[in-house]
Design a protein around this nucleic acid. Structure first.
Length: 706
DNA sequence: GGCGACTACATTTTT
DNA sequence: TGTAGTCGCC
């Protein structure tokens, strides 16, 4: 019987050992919450004797699920591997694959991803002659999604018409299309699972008996529906352990309800609460900064992180002229870290909005530093991948109108919108599959259309003769002549990338077959639908660029937190809404606590916004961090903490046109950037950060402005 | 029916 | 600034 007490601190061990009854683990950033979950599962299996299949663990991303599974495997024997670990969505999907017929789902139902569902909504909105200028399809989609995350939808109520024009009609048509084409969307995964539970007490009981121990990670980001899902399953045993940090709740905009964690102990009677506050990740100076910042929030349980690491590292605030200077500063400092031997994987550039990544990419490119933009458009959302997949999806589900419309036009083959809607309408009226309808339309086609449609249909005949997922992928790539299509349209570099992606899709299919020898095409397609950019593995050593949201759960030696400007971070729109401002502050807290060693924060005095250069003011968060009170690190790195510069409202200190942020050159040290200026006139000294030599103090007279 | 050009547009975060 | 969506021409 393994003893885990030596591998855990007291609070962690307490959480691991408390196996019965509701348990709330309030785990601050870097306090080892993943460790608690993995060890708790190991403890349940190895020491309490709970069969693995009686454990359900919910994570935030598929990637996190994979990593957790790996870690657990190291602690338990191989025969104990069949724990249910996954995201809410993947778990519900698995349940619906088994029992979805109870709520009217056809076998092998497909999943409508974000793009597809927008396409469906757009069609409906157009067909209803709604003024798309006044009521954009996106609005409807958003509305539908929101409604589907409510209990009303679970209970099969109709949406309220409310002030929103035609909402009822759009919604019911949307639902009808989904049903017709045997689709569910993202929100349905949870909602239909719960509906199925509600209507089938015997099935519910089956899952209750199965999931006798439930663990949930990142509980602060759960929404009402997810809460309900857990409540239904856990209500009998009460063995539910949720781990989270109210200070890191950053998905309120997506419906996550911070009250889930704040009120957990009132919902579940006799909850035991364990607080993890000992932080093993960050230098004390970073934690001070984080604590100071978050103490400005009112909606929180309240806790301060306690530093376990020794003094060292630093928090730097770097004012820069504009977004290019900001990127240059980051790139140069990164270069310096790399020269010192820091692994690129230990460096991250964080920003509030995806659009900010651009400048960093340009500068890092120029300096030949390997980087990877994390998040954004995921692999399976890429055009070329969706094109290929649309054939496979249509083959898998011949009623899939979205995939029909997509595949028949990519590559173009003379069939346009008119033909597509004719065929779609015909299929719908006759109850035919789209492939069958297309086949029947063949005699009516002439010329280019006929010459296009015939080989198109032939592809599906070929697919019908195959069963191996990877072979089918290959067949589509080959028979569509997709590579030629790409080469014809894209520039060389772009084409190469896309062809690479297509090959990567084939590889993914091969890996899928190896991982799931029994897996069907439906399974493969489902996997592609719920895989997001955050789930993609990053096996190349590269500096990471990402939004703060994407950085949740990660840690880096060196963190650049950029764009700390009022209106950007906190983002405008949150400024006069206290709850939203608090969420922005939590987001900032998440960013700060990603750093292990050094935290560099930048803000620009001007920035391009929608193509206009706008003056910017520094973020109030910087002041809240109490930057001024931070002592210099015991063993200072060769940087200057310029945060304590006099806050002059007039132009910043400037001598001979040289000011902070200026690019200058020096006879001996070469090119550099001015970080700070002290004194005035000819005797002024500049702190200059040289590309080659790091930080030096130089008389202004020896510098040449570049 | 396809394609290119233009314009208008809106800009948060994504399971 | 960048892109998505529309319009009009071939």
């Amino acid at each position: 019987m393994p003893d885990y007490s030596k591998e855990l601190n007291e609070a962690q061990y307490d959480a691991v050992q408390t196996t019965e009854g509701p348990l709330l683990v309030l785990a601050g950033a870097g306090t080892g919450k993943t460790r608690v979950i993995t060890y708790r599962i190991a403890h349940l299996i190895n020491n309490v004797g709970v069969p693995a299949q009686n454990i359900l663990a919910v994570t935030f991303t598929n990637k996190a699920a994979g990593e957790m599974k790996e870690r657990i495997m190291k602690l338990v024997s191989r025969s104990d591997s069949d724990i249910w670990i996954g995201t809410f969505h993947s778990i519900c999907l698995r349940i619906l694959r088994r029992d979805g017929h109870l709520v009217g789902l056809g076998a092998g139902f497909g999943i409508l991803d974000q793009d597809d569902r927008l396409a469906v909504v757009r069609d409906i909105v157009k067909s209803l002659n709604i003024d798309v200028k006044k009521y954009p399809p996106k609005q409807y989609m958003w509305r539908i999604s929101n409604f589907k995350s409510t209990r009303a939808y679970v209970d099969e109520a109709a949406p309220g018409t409310d002030e929103f024009h035609m909402m009822d009609e759009v919604f019911s048509q949307y639902q009808k299309k989904l049903k017709e084409q045997n689709f569910i969307d993202f929100d349905d995964m949870l909602a239909l699972t719960i509906r199925m539970f509600r209507q089938n007490s015997d099935v519910t009981q089956y899952y209750r008996n199965m999931f006798r121990y439930i663990l949930v990670d990142e509980y602060q980001d759960t929404n009402d529906i997810q809460f309900l899902f857990l409540k239904i399953l856990a209500t009998e045993t009460g063995n539910i352990c949720v781990v989270g940090d109210d200070d890191q709740s950053i998905y309120g905009w997506r419906g996550a309800d911070i009250r889930n964690i704040l009120e957990f102990d009132t919902v579940y009677q006799n909850t035991k609460t364990v607080r993890l506050v000992e932080n093993y990740r960050s230098r004390p100076v970073i934690l001070q900064t984080a604590n100071a910042l978050i103490s400005n929030n009112r909606m929180r349980k309240g806790k301060n992180l306690v530093a376990c690491r020794e003094e060292g590292g630093m928090v730097q605030v770097m004012p820069v002229g504009n977004e290019t200077d900001e990127a240059e500063f980051a790139a140069q400092t990164i270069q310096k870290y790399l020269d010192e031997g820091t692994s690129p994987d230990e460096i991250a550039v964080l920003y509030r909005t995806n659009a900010q990544s651009r400048n960093f990419e340009v500068l890092l490119n120029r300096m030949a530093i390997r980087y990877k933009v994390v998040g954004g458009i995921g692999f399976y959302q890429r055009k070329e991948i969706k094109d290929i997949l649309s054939y496979l999806r249509l083959h898998d589900n011949p009623y899939d109108g979205v995939s029909f419309a997509r595949s028949v036009k990519a590559p173009p083959r003379g069939i346009g919108d008119t033909a597509v809607s004719n065929i779609t309408e015909y299929a719908s009226a006759e109850g035919l599959s789209l492939i069958e309808a297309a086949r029947q339309s063949l005699p009516a086609l002439r010329g280019a259309q006929k010459r296009g449609m015939e080989p198109y249909l032939w592809i599906f005949t070929e697919l019908g003769a195959q069963s191996k997922v990877s072979e089918m992928v290959k067949t589509v790539i080959y028979l569509t002549e997709y590579e030629d299509f790409i080469k014809k349209y894209e520039d060389e570099h772009e084409a190469e990338k896309r062809i690479g992606n297509i090959n990567e899709l084939y590889n993914a299919a091969v890996s899928f077959e190896m991982a799931f020898p029994e897996g069907t095409m439906s399974d493969f397609l489902a996997a592609t639908a719920i895989t997001t950019s955050l789930d993609e593995s990053d096996n190349t050593a590269a500096v990471k660029l990402m939004t703060i949201h994407s950085a949740k759960g990660l840690e880096f030696e060196q963190v650049f937190l950029t764009g700390l400007e009022n209106g950007l971070f906190p983002l405008h729109g949150s400024l006069d809404e206290p709850a939203e401002l608090e969420e922005e502050r939590r987001l900032c807290y998440v960013a700060v606590t990603r750093a292990k060693q050094n935290l560099h924060m930048t803000y620009a005095s001007t920035r391009m916004v929608y193509g206009n250069r706008m003056p910017q003011r520094r973020s109030p968060f910087l002041d809240e961090m109490g930057i001024a009170g931070i002592k210099a690190p015991a063993k200072p790195r060769p940087y200057m903490d310029v945060s304590q510069k006099p806050k002059s409202t007039v132009a910043r200190t400037e001598v001979n046109g040289i000011k902070s942020g200026s690019k200058v050159s020096h006879e001996k040290f070469g090119e550099g950037m001015v970080v700070a200026i002290s004194g005035s006139g000819d005797s002024a000294n500049c702190d200059v950060f040289f590309k080659a030599g790091g930080l030096k103090k130089i008389r202004v007279g020896f510098l040449k402005l570049l």
